[in-house]
Amino acid sequence: MKELDYSIVEEAAKQLYIKALCELPPDVRIALKNAYAKETNPAARSVFDAIFKAIDIADTKKTLLCQDTGLPIYKVKIGSKYNWNGAAIKKCLSEGARRATQEFPFRSSSTHTITRINPQTSVGPGLPVIYYDFADDVDTLDILMVPKGSGSENMSKMQMFYPQHGIKAVKKFILDTVIESGANPCPPGIIGVGLGGTADLVMKLAKDAIVRPVGQRNPDPMLAEMEIELEEAINATGRGPMGLGGDISCLAVHIEAAYTHITQNPVAVNTQCWPARRARAIITPSGNVTYGY
């Protein structure tokens, strides 16, 4: 087979950043509609009205839904049945993010962490954030793009509990973290929770949780039940859309878990705002690209 032209991957990486910023995934739209149907507070209902109008305008005018273009994150899954060039993929993702920013153009939200100089490229040391994973039995390259805004990302929290604190402390921590974050993450969004692993893995699990389509439960019944319990608790607070009071304070709680150390009990929360933006591309070795979510 002839070697793939990697400019296809770069172009996809560019299109994905733009698509994610402009087109809200269908599962999030459905979750917002379902939430609106349940909301009884008039001010909260007007928040939903504005949300639906904003989505419509972004759709018809192909404009950004939210002005915060976020930090670019790419999650790639490399199929084992084709000889994908990892180093080329890495370069393409970075170039794609840069080109999206400068060619669309939209503001770069990425900056030097000390000098605060923003080269208006969205990329730099450590950015885009890239996660690599591998899939058996397929030959495709699966790229999921997530622009992560700061209002929600700034509310992230993790805690290394001990086993003696049990699941009780973990659940309380999750609820308290959501309550403390108030209106900042533009609720109602997705509450991503990581359980177990190491300090870094637990936060990554929480990030994995926010990109799961709304409406899907964790396949482990114990974790699925915990998701429902926490959703009920969060919505019972009455914080409401945009923190102004109402019945719906979150669209979903998603939990991802890993094994952990016998003396550890880590938990992390990563919140996603109501514009739970993400876009996906599946690329075949022959260079066909299919876009989705």
Binding site: K168, A169, K171, K172, L175, I179, G182, A183, E229, L230, E232, A233, A236, T237, G238, R239, G240, G243, L244, G245
Partner: peptide, 24 residues
């Protein structure tokens, strides 16, 4: 101050919510 009113109501309801979640 609407945000504070919402916050005060949450404080009031919290013991009940904790109880239902089984964390206290």
């Amino acid at each position: 101050h609407l945000y504070e009113e919402v916050g005060a109501k949450i404080k009031e309801k919290l013991p009940e919510i904790y109880k239902k979640l089984g964390v206290i």
